[in-house]
C-alpha cells in the first residue's frame, strides 16, 4: 500500500508528526480498546486458529481464548437482560416503540448468537477431526495427540470410537482395514540396503539405504523378494 500511494502516506505521516502527543496516545488507546472489546473479535480469532492449520490436523485446544469468549457471552446476556428489564420498567413494548434500548438489546443478542455459532463451529469442526482419529490410531491415541485435545474431546473420542466399534460388530465386518485399494500398481517401500543407481523401469534412480520411495509394484517386488526393500503399509 505504502509503495503504491507514496504521496498519500507521506501526507498521513506529516499529519501524525504534527499532532500533539496526547492525541496520538488517545488514538492508540482507542484502537487497543476497540481491538480487545469489539464483540466477536475473540471468537473469530478462535476460528482463524482452526482454519490456519492444515485440514485434518489439530492444534492444541485453546482453553484460554475459549473461556474468554464464554465470558463475553455472559457479559452479553447480562447487558441484554438489563436492557430488557429497563424497557419493562419503563413500560415500552419492544413491538410498537422501537426505542434505543430495543436495538441495544438486539445488538447484545446478536453478538451472543454469533459467539455461540463460533464456539460451536470450533468444537464441531474439531470433533470431526477427532472422529477420524479412530481410523488411524485405533483405541489408543498417542500422547502427542492426546495433549492437544480438551478433556471433553478425549471423552468424545472414546465414546465415538466405541459407537463405531459396535456398528462394525453389528455388521460383523472390520471396516478399519483395507483403507487403500489393494494391489495398487504403485507401492511405498523403504530401501533396506545400499543398492545404488539402477534402472527402475522407465527411469534411473539412486537407491540409498533408508530411502522411502514410491515404486511400481512390479519393479519393487523383485527387491522385496531379495530382502533389499520392505513395503510400507499404514
Amino acid at each position: 500500500m505504502r509503495r503504491r500511494f507514496p504521496q498519500f502516506y507521506a501526507h498521513v505521516d506529516k499529519v501524525f508528526d504534527e499532532m500533539p502527543v496526547w492525541v496520538v496516545t488517545v488514538v492508540k488507546e482507542l484502537k487497543d480498546y476497540w481491538n480487545s472489546k469489539m464483540y466477536g473479535r475473540k471468537a473469530s480469532q478462535l476460528l482463524k486458529e482452526l482454519v490456519s492449520g492444515d485440514s485434518g490436523q489439530l492444534t492444541g485446544f485453546n482453553n484460554d481464548l475459549f473461556k474468554q469468549v464464554i465470558e463475553e457471552c455472559d457479559e452479553s446476556v447480562h447487558h441484554c437482560q438489563a436492557l430488557l428489564r429497563k424497557m419493562q420498567e419503563e413500560g415500552t413494548s419492544n413491538q410498537t416503540n422501537k426505542n434505543p434500548d430495543h436495538y441495544g438489546a438486539l445488538v447484545h443478542h446478536l453478538s451472543l448468537v454469533r459467539n455461540k455459532r463460533c464456539l460451536m463451529a470450533y468444537v464441531y469442526n474439531r470433533a470431526e477431526v477427532v472422529q477420524n482419529l479412530g481410523w488411524t490410531f485405533k483405541a489408543k491415541l498417542p500422547d502427542a495427540i492426546k495433549m492437544k485435545l480438551s478433556s471433553e474431546e478425549q471423552k468424545y473420542f472414546t465414546n465415538h470410537y466405541a459407537t463405531l466399534q459396535s456398528y462394525m460388530k453389528d455388521l460383523d465386518l472390520d471396516l478399519a482395514v483395507d483403507m487403500l485399494p489393494p494391489k495398487d500398481p504403485y507401492i511405498k517401500v523403504r530401501v533396506l540396503e545400499e543398492i545404488g543407481y539402477v534402472s527402475l523401469g522407465d527411469q534411473v534412480g539412486n537407491l540409498t539405504m533408508h530411502a522411502i520411495l514410491f515404486l511400481k509394484r512390479t519393479v519393487a517386488e523383485d527387491y522385496i523378494l531379495q530382502g533389499k526393500m520392505e513395503e510400507l503399509t499404514n
Partner: peptide, 18 residues
C-alpha cells in the same frame, strides 16, 4: 455422543435460552 460432547464443551456454559 456428539450432542453430549457439544453440551459438555459449549452449551452448558451458554445462557438459558441459547
Amino acid at each position: 455422543d456428539m450432542k453430549k460432547h457439544l453440551e459438555d464443551s459449549v452449551l452448558c456454559k451458554m445462557p438459558d435460552r441459547y
